[in-house]
């Protein structure tokens, strides 16, 4: 019988140079602290010997622009490539030093997809979508030079309205838990992104966060009180810059009713950096 053996969530631009440029010395200091905390989460991840790592993240209009924007998409196949960008800038530059190709856990990806469709989740699938910093920055920070297990990347449409609801994302996470439970595998799952940044996706509001909202989310996750989070609206997430919390909602569905332990929370003008692990 399979089991989710690790659950974590973290911000997903994990690069000291990026934060040095964006927020100066304080930015560098805080992201280094966050990365250190995530690396220690990786120690615990490795101890549990997972057969696969599910990564729930969002596309930044790199993989699905604009032929199709799926609400939730399972990346299937045997391998996945990282997004390539000539003269990469900003968050895209984080990818430059990373391996170009990663193994996928084909059987688990197919199981999540096939059983999902059978059970009422109209999931999209892709054999070709590349993955960007939202997937690879956390994976590489979590594991460093250690072996990266086969991945199951899952895309959630966090940015392009209309997004899936928080409740639907949670329900999809519950589906993942059921699939894993019926499988023979030990599985880790991480959600990436956030916390609050880029409210309303307006350039004029880059540099604002909503720390009160973030602390409310964290308080509920620490207590294992997931029910109130199901009613989060797209409007709330948009105004507070919490679009990527939809990824976290999938994770919460997969590990509920486990309680969160905050490994790092660091406020910056640009974003609130976070690293959270669940007691499973």
């Amino acid at each position: 019988m399979g089991e989710i053996v690790f659950g974590g969530a973290m911000s997903h631009v994990l690069d000291p140079d990026y934060y040095q440029a964006a927020c100066g010395d304080l930015g560098r200091q805080k992201v280094v602290e966050a990365m250190d905390a995530i690396g220690k989460m990786g120690d615990r991840f490795v101890e549990r010997k997972p057969d696969a790592l599910i990564v729930v993240a969002d596309d930044h209009m790199n993989a699905f622009s604009f032929n199709c924007v799926p609400a939730i998409c399972v990346r299937i196949g045997k391998k996945v490539q990282r997004m390539m960008q000539d003269d990469a800038e900003a968050f895209d530059k984080v990818l430059d030093h990373m391996a170009p190709e990663y193994a996928l856990h084909e059987e688990l990806g197919n199981s999540i997809l096939e059983q999902g469709v059978k059970n009422g989740f109209d999931l999209a699938l892709s054999w070709e979508a590349p993955i960007d910093h939202a997937f690879l920055s956390p994976v590489n920070t979590l594991l460093g030079r250690r072996t990266i297990p086969p991945l199951v990347p899952i895309f959630v449409n966090a940015f392009i309205a209309p997004q899936p609801t928080a409740r639907r994302c949670f329900q999809f996470g519950q589906h993942i838990a059921r699939v894993v439970a019926k499988s023979p595998w030990a599985v880790g799952i991480i959600a990436t992104g956030g916390l609050s940044h880029f409210p309303e996706l307006l350039l004029g509001r880059v540099g604002e966060t909503d720390t009160v909202f973030d602390r409310k989310l964290i308080h509920l996750m620490e207590r294992g009180e997931h029910e109130p989070l199901l009613d989060l609206t797209a409007d709330e997430l948009h105004k507070t810059g919490s679009h990527e919390f939809l990824n976290w909602m999938v994770l919460l569905g997969a590990i509920t009713p486990a309680r969160a332990e905050v490994r790092y929370f660091g406020e910056l003008p640009r974003i609130n950096l976070a690293a959270v692990e669940w007691r499973l």
Binding site: A22, G24, S65, A90, F91, F159, F198, R205, R270
Partner: peptide, 26 residues
């Protein structure tokens, strides 16, 4: 979309660093 606006090489806002300064100002 903000992420496109910010990340077009040589045209975007370079992650806001040129426009926003090191204190993350507005």
């Amino acid at each position: 979309y903000l992420h496109l606006v910010m990340s077009i090489p040589k045209i975007g806002t370079h992650g806001g660093t040129e426009l926003l300064g090191h204190d993350g100002g507005q």
